[in-house]
Computed example of a mutant assay.
Amino acid sequence: MTLPDTMRAIVLVGHGGLDKLEYHTDWPRPEPGPDQVLIKVEACGMNNTDVNTRVGWYSKAVSDATSGDGFEEVGEDDPTWGGAPISFPRIQGADVVGEIVAVGANVDANRIGQRIMTDNWLRDWSDPLNKYSTGYFGSEADGGYAEYTVIDHRNAHVVQSDMTSAELATFSCSYSTAEGMLTRANVGADDVVLITGASGGVGSALIQLAKRRGATVVAMASESKHTQLAELAPDALLPRSVPNLGKALKAAIGRETVTVVADIVGGPAFGSLIDLIARGGYYTCSGAIAGPMVELDLRTFYLNDLTFTGSTVIPPQIFENLVSYIERGEVKPLVAQTVPLADFHAGQAAFIEKSHIGNFVVVP
């Protein structure tokens, strides 16, 4: 195969608004390193991580809810998920689905032609469980908002599925994040799981994956989205804002408490969510789109024997398990919109509005 020397790409040139994302038609195509594969990108999922990194929301200097605009107070030393600076220019985009078209010197040439999904956690493969030696595809290394990208061959997983590339590109970040949250909270068939932000990529993944484990699922989202979310078969649907959440739970499922809160929203509702957790239950979190600063009554935390767990860096088997769920048809994709690379700015603006259900996918 003759490969072009250049490619189209969306390139992030600094922290700030959408103007920091530049569309290039002649960006240099990457060459795979010794342990890497070159992927012809067919689709790449869009995630909150991309926006949060662009605007610098991860910085401790920022205390507001997530936003598509830049923050003036972004710290220079901690603007990314890992609390470190990002190198510019950077091509973002983690959830790549595509075809391997070239390989590095240490990679089996038989991998050329394979259809793959990317596991987005970049690891020290001599110590893959070390959370301090991880990076994220599209953050610490160029990702998939382009026609071609490179990644370590161990991060490129073959997938056997009849789904379209756009459908497959909805899974990697959202579903592995959700599965990591549920794994850390030890969710099983006896649990009652309350999910905030249930209409987004991670939220809708949490519904499916918690149901897959046999749990009773209560999903919270704007009422305008309930009809479509009902197709995922949660046991109950509640509005995003409820004056008396315990009473609403009692009416919906016959009890005023849950055993697990899976939260990606944070913000002012945090305290009322913690009050709902039954003694010995779990609060698991992987996001704070409504705001990272919350108040906690430590008496509720310790007197009720609660366990709090954050979920970011996940062990490799989480992604491997996810691929098996996909191949067995145990989860289904929710493609809210496909976005041509040339229309990226309009697509991300629509993504930020959060009027959709599921995932946006960029298609080169």
Rank of each mutant, 00 (worst) to 15 (best):
T49Q: 06
T53K: 00
D64Y: 02
P32H: 02
E42G: 14
G33S: 12
G83R: 03
S59P: 05
Y58C: 08
P85Y: 04
W57M: 12
P32W: 04
W27M: 09
I86C: 08
F71N: 05
T66M: 13
S87R: 10
T25K: 07
G45L: 06
S59G: 08
A84N: 10
W81D: 08
V41R: 03
I86A: 15
E31F: 02
H24S: 12
T49I: 14
W27D: 06
G68Y: 03
G70R: 02
P28M: 12
D35H: 11
L38N: 09
E73Q: 15
V55N: 07
W27T: 06
L38E: 11
A61L: 10
V62P: 00
V55M: 04
E42Q: 14
A65Y: 03
N47T: 14
T66S: 02
D64G: 01
G83K: 01
G83F: 08
P28Q: 06
A61C: 07
I86D: 02
R54K: 09
T49L: 14
Q36H: 12
A61K: 09
Y58H: 13
N48S: 10
T53Q: 05
N48T: 03
G70L: 07
T53P: 00
G68L: 09
D50N: 11
A65H: 07
D69M: 10
H24A: 12
S63M: 12
T53E: 12
P85C: 08
P32N: 05
S87G: 04
E76H: 08
Y58W: 15
G83L: 12
